[in-house]
Structure formats: structure tokens, C-alpha cells
Nucleic acid binder design. Structure first.
Lengths: 132, 132
DNA sequence: TATATCCCTAGTAATTTAGTAGGAATTAAT
DNA sequence: ATTAATTCCTACTAAATTACTAGGGATATA
């Protein structure tokens, strides 16, 4: 039940982009500012791009930029992208063995909702401004 | 960000104990009813015992029993016992590097509180009766 | 005394996480 | 056109964690 460093790193990267909204930031810059290696950040950014959270520009003076205003992107969306959709048990959306059905199901489903509701209420703008 | 099967198994076991409160259940019985192997359950139960959630009796006709009424034991307590105190990031209680300080700290601390508050409101009695 | 149980520790297999590494494709600047 | 900076893609590997398996000792009941 840990948030992976991948998710935390990714969140750091988009927070940095939120603080510099409008400007393209390269992986080199982002790596420097977050302390994550370039190559690993590349992979993380590629996932964020696939999920429509960031856009990219190739070539010299290219880089990454948020695909929308920081106030319109929730922390939840970022974390779900990098954390297997935040599925805290294997059966949030059905299709599980005996352990999941029955008794515990409602418990985990509600916990899942609470977690997502909380994270969806916080925008990258808020996070960047530490206004939480 | 997954709940481990260890935690789910343990929760199943104590739920079974809640349904049979007052009666000692052996690991053999608990293993049968939960579908977990005896040996693995033993380890899980030993952790729960160490954390004061269950009591044990050795020898023939021994087994495990809840250490308190099912309505007095929260799901949160059980899960924290088996899930490294539910520390969703490495620095919930301070002592972390650059990634944890600053920006994301308050985010994770609050999420941690929400998760615990939710799980602490649900008792084993409620869970056993699927009254969630 | 026999048997059923908990208790303790060590080992291992499988999975996931966290990176490393190399190089192709693309674009802007010169 | 050439160069340099960048994203993009894929494969590999190392480390950590999870999920068990296994053996046997200690203890209590019948």
C-alpha cells in the first residue's frame, strides 16, 4: 500500500511544469530539478503523454508541457496514470476469485472512491502553490 | 498502491473469528475457511497476535480468538498491523530525503489520515455482518 | 503418552519496482 | 545541409518486496 516512486516522480515533474506553464521543459531540465535520472523520467513522461496529461515537442528546444491549465488537471489523474489506475485490490472492477467477492468487496470499493475523490479535488495549481 | 494479499487474508481470518466470537479456531480451520495455506496463515496470525488483535491457546483444542469484542476492533487496526502501518509514503512520520519534504508532504499526510479514518470507523462486527 | 496445536526461523520462488542502456526519429538553429 | 538537441522506442537488468514453503521445537489436552 505504497505510492511508488514512479508516481511521486511523475507528480514532481508535472508540478514543475505547472510552475512554468506555457514553457516547454526538456527531460534534462526536469531531471535536474526533480533529481530523477533523465532516462527514467523519459519513461514516466511517456506514460503521462499517453494519458493526455502532457504534450511534447521534439527536436532542439523541444520538451514537455502540460496539455491543459494546471487548475484543470487533478493530482488524481496523474497518480492514476502512473499507479495502475489506483486499483487497491485486483477486483475493483469485477473479475476476481473468492477473496474479493463477498465480504471485503464493498470495503475496498468505498476506500477506492474516497481516495480518488480526495485526489481529484486537488489540482496541479494547488499543489504547485502548496495550497492544500 | 495495492493492499497485499497478506492483509486481505488476515482480514478474512479475523472476520471468521468475529463470526465465531468466543470460540477458538485453529489455523487448520481458518485455512480451510479462508482458502489460505496453514503455514502462511500461521505467520499472519502471529503478526496479529504480536499486535494484540488476537489471542492464542496452544495444545490440543487450542487456536486463535479475538482479543476483544468484534465491535471494538477496527478494520484499520488489522490492516495497519499487516500493511506496514499503512505508510503510503516513506516519510509519513518524518525523516525523508528531498522527494518527501516540501510540496507533496501535506498531500500524502492528508490522504493517509483519510484512509485511516475510514478504516477505523469500520469494526470487525460490521464487516462480518457486511454492514458497510 | 499420543496427538493436536501454536511457535519460531530459515529459505525460496514469483512478482513488481526501479532503474540502465542504446540508439532511431525528429526538429530547430546555424 | 549540417549539427546539436531533443523526444521516442525497446530491451535488458538489478534490487526490493511479496508470497509463500518447509522443518521442527514447545506446549497443552485428552
Amino acid at each position: 500500500m505504497k505510492i511508488s516512486s514512479k508516481a511521486r516522480y511523475g507528480l514532481y515533474a508535472v508540478t514543475e511544469m505547472a510552475r512554468n506553464y506555457g514553457e516547454y521543459l526538456s527531460t534534462v531540465e526536469l531531471a535536474e530539478r526533480t533529481g530523477v535520472t533523465e532516462k527514467y523520467l523519459e519513461q514516466i513522461l511517456s506514460i503521462l503523454k499517453k494519458n493526455g496529461i502532457v504534450k511534447s515537442a521534439r527536436g532542439a528546444s523541444g520538451g514537455y508541457i502540460l496539455s491543459d491549465l494546471p487548475e484543470n488537471i487533478s493530482v488524481g489523474r496523474v497518480i492514476r496514470s502512473l499507479e495502475n489506475n489506483l486499483e487497491i485490490v485486483g477486483c475493483i472492477n469485477g473479475g476476481c476469485g473468492k477473496m474479493c467477492g463477498c465480504t471485503q468487496r464493498s470495503l475496498w470499493e468505498k476506500l477506492y472512491s474516497y481516495i480518488n475523490d480526495y485526489l481529484d479535488k486537488i489540482s496541479l495549481k494547488q499543489l504547485a502553490e502548496e495550497n492544500i
